[in-house]
Amino acid sequence: MTLAHWTNRLAIGALALASGFAGGAATFYSPVHAAGGEPIHIERQEWSFAGVRGRFDREQLQRGFQVYKEVCASCHGLKRVYFRNLVERGGPMFDEESVKALAASWPNQIFDGPNENGDIATRRGALIKRPALLSDPILGPYDNDKQARAAQNGALPPDLSLITKARSVEFHGGVFAHIGQMLMDIANGYQEAGANYLYALLTGYKDPPKGVTLADGMNYNAAFPGHQIAMVAPFVDGSVKYQNEAVPRTVSQYSKDVTAFLAWAADPRLEERKRMGWLVMLYLLVTAVLLYFAKKRLWSTLH
């Protein structure tokens, strides 16, 4: 039982109280982008990296990268993450040699401007590219958005480097329950709404309910605002073969793992930040206490 766990328990208790205050309204979350219609429910998940003591689970990040590489990378880029980041502390921490090899064999190569001969394209018109190095970004398959749309039926698969920060969920419920929840989230250092949404999206593929007709090339997704998404369900149970046999090969597990990986991609300094946070808080607390007693002593001579 972690501290975060107990504070969450407390939060739920406080929430129950507070929502009672607001007339017993049920509280839930929906994606921020949902425009009108019946609100969508997004569940909160347990994340190892959530909360003031949150850390990434190294193995989970490695599995998540495997899912990204084998599934998502065929449509989505990760351009703000560099291969070297995969080696660095606080991330998946693969060993350097294997990441070098990975970069060299990454199918989406680097366009570096004109080559030694001043050419930028081959005779057949393809851009001249070179294999990636550790210092290069992890690119997706398309050279630009237009190419992506052309290949994806007009839809644009967004770069995933910031996706867990670029999505959020909205609170539904009474004013007081909302305020209570905000205070608890601040006290817990909980800002994982984007991860909750992403998990809900990846596990949200379902048969459309009766009476819903999908537009051409669209798929039904329970979490996506409007419910019609151009992205096909990226995986089914068993699609990705994890090395560790003990880890379930299920859609839900894949979704968790790739979400954790993308949460790291969006916030690669999370561990450093939280670790430093504790030192800073400790320093501030000790100094504040000393200052308080110094002040008290000083003022006591006055009366």
Partner: peptide, 30 residues
């Protein structure tokens, strides 16, 4: 001055809490 300093440190604790534990909380995902 002594009183201000103590209050300032308490305030910085709140400040630091957001900086280190919830830096994006006050911002907007968009």
């Amino acid at each position: 001055v002594m009183k201000d300093l103590f209050a300032l440190f308490v305030f910085i604790m709140l400040f630091a809490w957001f900086v280190f534990f919830a830096p994006d909380y006050l911002g907007h995902a968009d």
